[in-house]
Computed example of a mutant assay.
Amino acid sequence: NRQIANETIYSTRNVDGTDYLIERIPNIYDSKDKRLVEDILNGNDTKYLMSKHDPQTFDLIRDIVKYHYEQFKSDSKMYKVTKKKDKEIITLVGENPLTKYKEENGSIRKYSKKGNGPEIVTMKFESEVLGNHLDISSNYHTNNKKVILKQIKTYRTDFYKCADGKFRFVTIYFKDVSFNRTKGTYVIDRKWYDGEKEKKRIKSTDKFLFSMHRDELLGVVKEQGQPYFYDVYDEVADKKILHDGVNPEILLFALTGDDKKNVINLYPMFAYKKRQQKVITTAKDIRKYATDVLGNLYEVKDNKLKLEFK
């Protein structure tokens, strides 16, 4: 009865063998929605499905946006141009020009010879390469696309120390845990789990360290002289404290950040700063910690891999 994903249903499209998440701008005339306008002006508009499947209609929208820019590009209250890596980035500061266009001319219509095509209001676009998801396509009648729920919730993350000295992990999502009614236990399929280890280049001989759940304590030891994940400052000496190569920095484990790149999300114990993604592969050492009822910190040892539990 656990929620394993967010409840928003998304569609996907396969482009040259890669699945992309499809999202949409609900109202291109929204005065505060600048995405379509800025994408057109900065040459990022090929992600819009209309630009591929109905280029004549999309060209009408392009012309409106670019005409407005040419008319008002010198108005600092409307547009701002900045340079980033030798490239000019145009930012819309004022109102969406499509808002004004609709007020004066009505909605843009799909291109047709008679000029009476249906009104254009929404705009679909390829937002990102499809990542962790739950495929629910079997519940719908679809052709050449998936229907998915994204942001699959993490159940736990299993850490290993590999023969090459690096740390790697296997991420287990709630969708990967099934309930055995006969035994009354939760089960993670061994064959699936071994397959995930193989994907992460974790060998059967590599050492299992521990499993981490959300908000448990992870101690990370970095090489001497390396900075802490979160700055530690010596006010007396007026300088940052660096890792000594022995004592761990104790952090709250949030969840897996990027499973393929071996990145996890961490944040400090006593201050809920913005969560940060951290690569864990090359740490000197990692350890699991907990606190007793009095708040004393201790290292959790003798962890056992559990693929069946209550």
Rank of each mutant, 00 (worst) to 15 (best):
K273G: 13
P55I: 11
K161G: 09
K47W: 11
N144S: 09
T282V: 12
Y111K: 05
D16E: 11
Q56T: 15
K47H: 13
Y228A: 08
K239H: 07
I264S: 07
I4H: 05
Y233L: 02
L92I: 03
Y272K: 13
P268Y: 10
E128L: 01
N96I: 00
D189L: 05
F174T: 08
D258M: 14
Y193T: 06
M50H: 03
E299I: 04
I61C: 00
T282C: 15
G115C: 12
V15Q: 13
K304F: 07
N96S: 02
M269H: 07
P118Y: 13
Y67C: 11
I280F: 12
R214W: 06
D158F: 14
K273C: 15
N296Q: 07
N303L: 01
S112L: 07
D75L: 12
F169S: 11
S51L: 05
N27A: 01
T57L: 09
K83N: 11
I90A: 01
V65S: 13
G257K: 03
S74K: 02
E126D: 05
D54V: 07
R181K: 12
Y69A: 00
G165P: 08
N180R: 13
E299Q: 04
W192M: 05
D292W: 07
T142V: 13
L92A: 01
E7S: 14
F72Y: 12
Y155H: 13
D135C: 09
S204C: 15
T57D: 14
I120F: 06
S76L: 13
Y155M: 05
V65Y: 09
G117M: 02
V65L: 13
G219H: 00
E88Q: 12
G17I: 08
L251C: 00
I172Q: 10
D45N: 00
L130I: 05
K197A: 02
K301P: 12
